[in-house]
Design a protein around this nucleic acid. Structure first.
Lengths: 236, 236
DNA sequence: TGTACATCAGTGAACGCGCGTTCACTGATGTAC
DNA sequence: TGTACATCAGTGAACGCGCGTTCACTGATGTAC
């Protein structure tokens, strides 16, 4: 690799790093072309050698965030023995929160569709969905079926067959719906916590999230699977 | 009331109306002092007779949105007979979505904490919390207790006693936690739908939300309370 | 009923700001022969 | 190994833009006596 190519790589890395820094400090609003140039002590125009527009820049960071979140959760999930369904879900839930707290603005970027228009769906976009569907398939194999109401004649999740193909497993629609419901529950709680919505100031945040995770377990595993109170402590 | 006071009232109303229009069309970014002045064919500076700053303007609309949402849900909820616990919850859940779809950007304003700094907590801020706590109290009276895991020694919701006082009823913490979990679940689903997050394009949105509501019922009422599939159709 | 003064809505010009993006340029790195 | 040309990173000035906010002002509405 020549000097030129090397230099380009390090500059691209520097752009990504500085972009994440700006994002972490001031949110997506703070991520401006000129601000980034300042951060890198470059002329603003120089950035246009690496990026087509500000939109592009945001999309770049969005992709990075997606991939990082998916990597982190995947790793934590995969570290749990396959038979430990509850443990796998808890790894998902708690890693989701930990990552989000550590990367607030990246999470908000992912969850806010700040980047307008048709999003660039990368292969990362659905990695967590795939993780979820496989977990659901294993749960079904273990005889766990969610008591969420059955769908009508028409499928609710039209794309389910595609996801099943990608995941290499099949699940009932209800199983997938339960998984998504549980995920929504966590996301809703995280929005509230990260945005400081009304009510959050009166919560013990950690314990509150634990309670929310417990609620998702009720959804996914049913009431008989809820542990007795004294052993509720979730992994950090 | 003199001509002057009358005029002031109508102008204030016009500002609110035009503000909501701008918000509906372009989101909170579109709500600028100059844009609003244009909308009202006024000089930008004229608005400073009615509003201290742009922040103030956003806070004004935020308060309005809060009140409107709470009013709407409250009314729908109160129209259901008190004994019909499921019906009351469904009224909450479906009115929440209907209002949000009809007022996307107002809902996002409420849910995004766009207005920085310490929010002006009005008496509306917790009206839905109070509705929820009363519903929970009635559920307990009917012998329904959520199977969400019990809290530790320390309370998770430190402000619960205050809410109980405001609501004039008492509930177990678990009951409140279940209610909040259910609410988060709906909010999470709404964020996904309104922001067009990954995955939403493959859903039948109405049926999907119905499934999410069904999941919340599982949380709140337990599995034995889930209706058989054929009568699942939710009220619109 | 009339006069003198105070209040207040609205004007229009101006301020300084930071933004995204373009463009002609310089000088260094790479390539072909 | 050396020369001629092409590629490419980065510069610096400039563009037009819309923004929030201030300020001295005008003219109409209200008030006190």
């Amino acid at each position: 690799m020549g000097t030129r190519a090397q230099h380009r790589d390090t500059t691209e890395a520097a752009i990504l790093a500085a972009g994440l820094r700006l994002l972490a400090e001031g949110g997506s609003e703070a991520l401006t072309v000129r601000g980034l140039a300042r951060e890198l002590t470059l002329a603003p125009s120089a950035l246009y050698r690496y990026v087509r527009s500000r939109e592009d820049l945001l999309a770049l960071l969005l992709r990075h965030a997606y991939a990082d979140l998916a990597d982190t959760i995947q790793a934590a999930h995969d570290a749990v023995p396959r038979v430990d369904l509850r443990g796998r879900w808890r790894a998902f839930a708690h890693t989701l929160r930990n990552w989000s707290l550590a990367h607030r603005h990246e999470w908000l970027l992912i969850q806010s569709a700040v980047v307008a228009g048709p999003l660039p769906f990368t292969e990362n976009t659905f990695r967590l969905h795939l993780l979820l569907i496989r977990l659901g398939a294993d749960a079904e194999r273990a005889g766990i079926f969610p008591s969420i109401s059955a769908p009508r004649d028409e499928p609710v999740i039209r794309g389910l067959p595609v996801l099943e193909m990608m995941a290499g497993v099949e699940v009932r629609e209800q199983t997938m719906l339960s998984g998504l419901a549980a995920w929504h529950l966590l996301d809703g709680a995280l929005y509230a916590e990260l945005l400081g919505l009304a009510g959050t100031e009166m919560m013990d945040a950690d314990a509150y999230y634990d309670a929310m995770v417990s609620a998702t377990e009720l959804l996914l595993l049913g009431p008989e699977a809820i542990r007795p109170p004294e052993s509720v402590d979730a992994p950090r």
